[in-house]
Nucleic acid binder design. Structure first.
Lengths: 198, 198
DNA sequence: GGACTATTTTAATCTAGATTAGAATTTTTT
DNA sequence: AAAAAATTCTAATCTAGATTAAAATAGTCC
């Protein structure tokens, strides 16, 4: 029990740190944010962060891994509901956005992957590719089942994911707006997908 | 004539520099890109850049001003054609993307505005706001003229502009893909806007 | 070809911020 | 409440990279 409590505390703090870091990185970029900036949000000293992470690069890396996990989780949840392609996309977007604007946010934008060390860069790129690929699979499934009209899934995927990825750039924690985004974005982004039953 | 030629050379080099900087910044962020990185693309020394710009901050600032000008130019051109709202949006997107993936690119993503000094930040933010506002006006005009179905223009604008802004993150100069983007994105992004004449 | 200007380089300096070691403090355990 | 472990801080060090000054080169004009 003791062990577990400590682990929990550690993990909780670490997660708080990752969210603080994500907030900084989203606003001012990776290199533009000092460890002092991140620590200040937590009421800590910059040096304290080294208790949780080996160095700054690892901090970004973990932010990106976390972002990927959140996206994958949202998608898995949507897929598990067994809806048609169109509705799966819409659900996925809703779940993903809800997390981004909710209290598990902010989620780091993966905008500086080249700054990672090679081994981390490769891993994050792979996660990112997998996510895109799975999204495209859903689109294809939707085209198959007749819920989505035929389209270039690569380009359509890029378009939709771009909108999602950009959200943290203009959304900064105003929860009312957060609700608006979660309520409207899924419909806006999928409106053009529907196959019109002529 | 002499003066003009020199001015031209200077301006040309400066523009090359801004495009090189945009490329670096888009890949690795503002603070993540050293002046040496930018200079290397031009075959110059980092110190040489100071002949064109007062400091690094001004370099980003100019990149952002340039990005704003490109967007405004594309929009003005589209508006000047006097089409209905829907087609104006589509034209604007096409023109904007064509510049982004064409030889006037790459265009800097305005992703680190907080890193600018206050006076520059205010100016760039204002340019950005104006652009968003004008885009929303076009959407509203389209709703008025019946070419676009009623929608939350703020959210819809954010969604579409997010897709556009994100393009430089995954497009890196493969001109064949550039053509694909220019050909497909405008249709993809506007497909959901059309008012279905029931 | 010499003089003048424009452009770039070399060779410092200077600073913010990452990193580290060890001390101090806080929390947990018994 | 002492001992042990976990967490944070203080006070350096170290380095990359921005910036500057002056010299060197390239280009243009007469």
């Amino acid at each position: 029990m003791a062990q577990k409590a400590e682990e929990t505390r550690f993990e909780l703090q670490k997660d708080r740190m990752l969210r603080a870091a994500a907030r900084c990185f989203n606003e001012k970029g990776y290199s533009g944010s000092s460890l002092k900036d991140v620590a200040a949000i937590l009421g800590l000293t910059d040096a304290a962060l080294y208790y949780y992470v080996r160095n700054k690069e690892e901090l970004v890396y973990l932010c990106y891994v976390r972002a990927a996990a959140v996206g994958r989780e949202a998608m898995a949840r949507a897929v598990s509901e067994g809806l048609d392609g169109f509705d799966t996309v819409r659900r996925y977007l809703r779940y993903h956005i809800e997390i981004m604007v909710g209290d598990r946010g902010p989620i780091a934008i993966m905008s500086e992957i080249p700054s990672l060390i090679p081994i981390h860069r490769d891993e994050v790129l792979e996660l990112s590719r997998q996510h895109s690929a799975r999204f495209e699979e859903i689109l294809e499934a939707g085209i198959e089942d007749g819920s989505i009209s035929p389209c270039d899934v690569r380009m359509t995927g890029n378009a939709i994911m771009g909108s999602i990825n950009w959200i943290p750039k203009w959304y900064h924690g105003d929860s009312e707006m957060g609700n608006t985004i979660a309520a409207k974005f899924p419909a806006i982004l999928t409106k053009g997908l529907r196959l019109e039953t002529s």
